[in-house]
Design a protein around this nucleic acid. Sequence first.
DNA 1: CACCTGTTATATTATTTGTATAACAGGTGG
DNA 2: CCACCTGTTATACAAATAATATAACAGGTG
Lengths: 127, 127
Amino acid sequence: MLIHIDFNSEEAIYQQLCNQIILGIATCQFEDGQVLPSVRQLADDIGINMHTVNKAYTVLKQEGFVKVDRRRGAVISVDYDKQRAEKAIGKDLRVILAEAICRNLTREDIHSLVDRIYDEYERYINS
Amino acid sequence: MLIHIDFNSEEAIYQQLCNQIILGIATCQFEDGQVLPSVRQLADDIGINMHTVNKAYTVLKQEGFVKVDRRRGAVISVDYDKQRAEKAIGKDLRVILAEAICRNLTREDIHSLVDRIYDEYERYINS
DNA sequence: CACCTGTTATATTATTTGTATAACAGGTGG
DNA sequence: CCACCTGTTATACAAATAATATAACAGGTG
């Protein structure tokens, strides 16, 4: 999977890494059981420090996207606990939807936005 | 409006302030044209530094929630440009929905979550 | 025994966050 | 005119975070 970091972004590098890997899982470019590049390998490829990649992997492990296999390294392993997922996503949504309501976006506006993004991701999956 | 800061949160104080004021606008506790407390007043009330409040106000101004009236101070003034709003919110949604898809949450799951949060906010408005 | 994993420890630099004083410019009301 | 209120700006400083740089360690593989 191609990973691109924007070094001019205000978003931390390890955070960009996390988001891109999650995006990769969502679009099936990474699948359950697949091995991620080693921290040293990926750091070399991107041109960043090993510890920055390690921090991203640690966060992904913490959030239930990855497990570490002593033999192979970091392996995609998504936690599918629906309750936990809805709670976490609801927390983030609450912040975003407050802004949406301020801007006079209706719930129908948001629904179609959600559908558009889901379509976008599913298009990637089927190709 | 009651503003409460969690000093143990990992979220920056000025960011919490921004979010709470946006939440206040969403729930009509702040309305267009209403004057926010002065940076010194609010800083005193919360028990933080003036500059921290000022940073929050500056961000809110930047994002189109507030304008500064030389005579009165910071005034709620929401930018209702729908295109700009959808673009900004879409960007945030894309990150969250990637995680949702990873967790096997369907778009219907998200729709009902969105509805639940909208209901929650509208309940505050009608009371 | 080399070689690959992640992990840990330590140190250093730069940036961000929050605080602390202080001053300045514009507007208001006595 | 003058105190007094706005936000704004300029410094300075401490603490936390982000990123880099070396180096070493433990577990597993071939």
